[in-house]
Design a protein around this nucleic acid. Structure first.
Lengths: 132, 132, 132, 132
DNA sequence: GTGGTCTAGACCACG
DNA sequence: GTGGTCTAGACCACA
């Protein structure tokens, strides 16, 4: 499978796992009903402690992205469609503003950033059918 | 001045300071040559430890955003124009991808995200002349 | 029959069975002498492991709610009337206290909770003749 | 302070802590702004591992009941008033139904249970000014 | 076999 | 000092 962990990253190991599952679900690489590797199997494969993997899975379950079926394993949950709230939009906009600042200091201005976003989003859309 | 610290945030206090200076410079609220408050003054005003403010200033100086003139104070540095490297672009794109994933899980699809980015960037451009 | 199993629930599968029989008996849906489905039959019907159903039946038999007549099947037992002990009352009160806490954090205060309990208990009484 | 852990209980240790803080907040024994013992201090006091205490605190923070101020410690958060949703009421009612069943099997009928609830809720109200 | 819990002991960033 | 993360290794309930 496609999990990759970078032990040198400052991002916590369990968070890297969470992020990758989130991306997998968002991009359609992981479909509802797909089985995730067992906690211990994945721990061995990635040379992590099983507790680290378990922490990631628990976080994902809390978010409703995955479900565990008692004794049978862990599976990708059906997507729950919840309309984005006003708070959600505010959060996304603040993230964008942060990104504009960071890009500026790298020498990338707002117009160029919009172009890059458009291009990256287009690449995303080719993979999945869009979801807004 | 306009510094605001949220001790409840999960973002480190010194990082919040760094972020705000970075945004101030990027948006033109802070111009080269502007004087920043002294470490002690800012620490008192924001009810922070001196070390916390000092750490923020050190980080900003390391990035070349501010300069300390011995005995005279701390000032916003002249902007060093450096073309964005290939790595810089790769980093920005990865950030965008992360944002697409996060937005997706909030119920905001790629097309809608591009619209929001365009709108936020437009608001930004009204304040500053852009730099791409 | 009316058994419903939710494999996603955090309640163990065997426990869900036990709970439903307990409710059935308490509400009068299951009367003394009524025959329960065999372990194998119920396992097939609910897509459970035999052992899971067997464990539930064992637990119910241990509680005296059902009786197994060798070779004839499993039946709802006659209700044994035993006065509630001091310990029983203490347990019930602790459960109520827990419920008061949980309700509080959902924004439901003690007075309102009492009202809800009264209403739910009234609905219950319509089904069965009460037993206190 | 008033934390008590029962290592023999089948309730997980961290869950016992969570429950006690929840009750403390609900009953007004813990007021917004009150400082909780540090993770390690409480771990020593209760003869638990610090990870166990940390897990409890993290769960409570996720629920918004407590807040951690970077490097300063953990504090009871201001109560966020959120109106109970339809789902919340459904959950409470299901809990009540379960309690009615359990009480029945102990020989305590619905009318008597209502009386007990009324009495326990009254005792609660004497401690705190009510909140519905 | 599965996930959930717990301990012991370690290292780190933050203030 | 604070909390956050991680490992190693153990035990348990569940299916």
């Amino acid at each position: 499978m496609w999990f990759r962990i970078d032990p040198r990253s400052e991002v916590p190991l369990y968070q890297q796992l969470v992020d990758q599952v989130r991306e997998g679900v968002a991009r359609g690489w992981l479909r509802p009903g797909d089985r995730l590797p067992s906690v211990r199997e994945l721990a061995v494969r990635l040379a992590l402690n099983h507790n680290t993997v378990a922490k990631a899975y628990q976080e994902l379950e809390r978010e409703g992205l995955i479900e565990t079926l008692r004794g049978r394993g862990t599976f990708v949950a059906a997507r729950r469609r919840r309309p984005a709230s006003h708070e959600d939009y505010a959060w996304v906009e603040s993230q964008i503003r942060q990104l504009l600042v960071a890009a500026y200091h790298l020498g990338i201005g707002p117009e160029e950033l919009v172009d890059i976003v458009r291009r990256v989003a287009a690449g995303w859309r080719e993979t999945e059918g869009g979801s807004s």
